Simulated assay, not measured.
Amino acid sequence: MDATTQITPTFLTQRELAELLRMPERTLEDWRLTQTGPPYIKLGRLVRYDVRDVLTWVHEHRHG
């Protein structure tokens, strides 16, 4: 078994991420347009967020 078979990425929809961060979906849309939010993946017309990328992004934006 190689390293890639051990990886189980978890991808969130915009709605799921908005619920997780407790913010409006529109904020995530604005962040994508201004390229200021967490990294996202486009699969055709679908937008997905890798949980690992989101957690890294959140920790990079901590204050205090």
Rank of each mutant, 00 (worst) to 15 (best):
Q35N: 14
T5G: 04
W57Q: 02
H63V: 13
V47G: 04
F11Q: 06
R52M: 07
P9T: 08
A3E: 14
D2R: 04
R26W: 04
R62C: 08
Q14W: 00
H59L: 14
D53S: 15
Q6E: 15
T34C: 02
T4H: 02
R32S: 05
G37R: 02
D50G: 00
F11K: 01
Q14V: 15
Y49M: 09
P38N: 02
Y49W: 05
P39L: 10
T34I: 02
V58Q: 08
F11L: 15
D2V: 09
I7K: 09
L21G: 01
P39G: 03
L17I: 09
W57G: 01
G37S: 07
I7R: 10
H59A: 10
G44Q: 03
D50C: 10
Y49D: 09
A3R: 05
H59V: 07
E16M: 12
G64C: 05
D30K: 07
R15G: 04
G44V: 11
Y40Q: 08
Q35C: 11
R22D: 10
P9Q: 13
L55F: 03
L28V: 04
L33N: 15
L46D: 11
R22P: 00
A3N: 07
E60W: 02
V47P: 01
L20Q: 11
T8N: 13
F11D: 02
W57H: 14
P39K: 03
T27M: 12
T10C: 09
Q14Y: 00
P24H: 11
T27I: 10
E16A: 15
L21C: 08
L55V: 13
G44E: 02
Y40H: 15
G44T: 08
R45F: 06
R22C: 06
E19V: 10
V58T: 03
